[in-house]
């Protein structure tokens, strides 16, 4: 039976607070790197955006929002909205991007979640993260982070090598969006557990024009995909795969976990064949995840 559809309408997700009010030890931050800190609009609460890496980048990012100083009231909910603001030929566009997680939230922190940035910050477009904390639907604090999302550039020049895979889903306007995350943080020689985040992107009716949230696109986690994977070294001098890999399989809402064995350092593709029932969305000849290390 399919999982219950959880629309990320307007890409807004509300998270119930955990009743456990145990504080986070400052000596052991929830994630290693502090990316940015902002005061809320009332200048009362300070919120820090933390990440598992030193900077945010195109693709899957493990992040958390952690309060500093004054404590928020208990029993609230977090609301998070990533936005890409684009200016093209005098027209403004706005897009969002999918995310997952933030399950273990409380009045100190949002818990760890994963934001899949579909694109980096560019000259004509910048990212913000709008974060709110609400108690009984009443906003207690609102923060806005202007963030830099770095592009990931590879030495290998191949348009099909991706950190974010985007392919049309059949003849519809919907798009399959996938990103990867190595559980250990970075890929390495040997056995690598990795997560694949998969979403269906449904376009906004007005394509994101204007400034209303209701006009942003929607991302729906996909839970019934079948993913066959082949780690592969595409360098012409290599042109080989690796043994004993495990295809990603569904573990939780929009998330699949597999094993990729990398026998050496270098540039590695993870070629995929992705289908849902009778529908095949991606074959190994198409876009693939790619990484260099």
């Amino acid at each position: 039976m399919k999982n219950i559809f959880l629309a990320l309408f307007l890409s807004i997700v509300l998270f119930a607070c955990n009743e456990d009010n145990s504080s986070i030890e400052p000596e052991q931050p929830i994630l290693e790197y502090a990316i940015a800190s902002e005061k809320d609009e009332a200048n009362t609460y300070t919120l820090t955006l933390r990440s598992s890496k030193a900077s945010l980048h195109e693709g899957v990012n493990n992040v958390a929002f952690v309060t500093e100083g004054d404590t928020l009231p208990e029993g609230g909910e977090w609301k998070i909205l990533p936005k890409m603001h684009m200016q093209m030929e005098g027209m403004s566009h706005m897009h969002s991007t999918p995310f997952l997680g933030f399950d273990e939230a409380d009045n100190h922190a949002s818990g760890i979640g994963q934001i899949l940035f579909l694109m980096p910050t560019v000259e004509m477009g910048s990212w913000t993260l709008e974060v709110s904390y609400l108690v009984e639907d009443e906003s207690i604090a609102d923060w806005t982070f202007d963030i830099q999302v770095d592009a990931i550039e590879f030495l290998a020049q191949d348009p099909t090598f991706k950190t974010v895979v985007r392919v049309p889903m059949g003849d519809s306007d919907e798009t399959l969006i996938m990103g990867y995350n190595f559980t250990a943080g970075e890929p390495a020689m040997g056995r690598n557990e990795y997560e694949v985040l998969a979403f269906k992107r449904m376009p906004a009716m007005d394509h994101g024009h204007g400034d209303g949230h209701a006009h942003l696109e929607t991302y729906m986690p996909l839970n019934d995909l079948t993913i066959k994977s082949t780690p592969f070294m595409p360098d012409p001098s290599m042109n080989h795969g690796s043994p004993n890999n495990t295809d990603p399989s569904f573990v939780s809402e929009g998330k699949y976990v597999g094993i990729a064995n990398f026998t050496m350092t270098g540039g590695w593709q993870i070629k995929m064949n992705v289908s849902e029932g009778e529908n095949t969305y991606l074959t190994e000849e198409g876009q693939s995840f790619y990484t260099e290390f």
Binding site: D235, P236, M264
Partner: peptide
């Protein structure tokens, strides 16, 4: 060990 220098300008490989 072995270092392999990518002929296509890609990242070098090591094992």
């Amino acid at each position: 060990d072995m270092t392999m220098y990518s002929p296509s300008g890609g990242v070098n490989m090591y094992m």
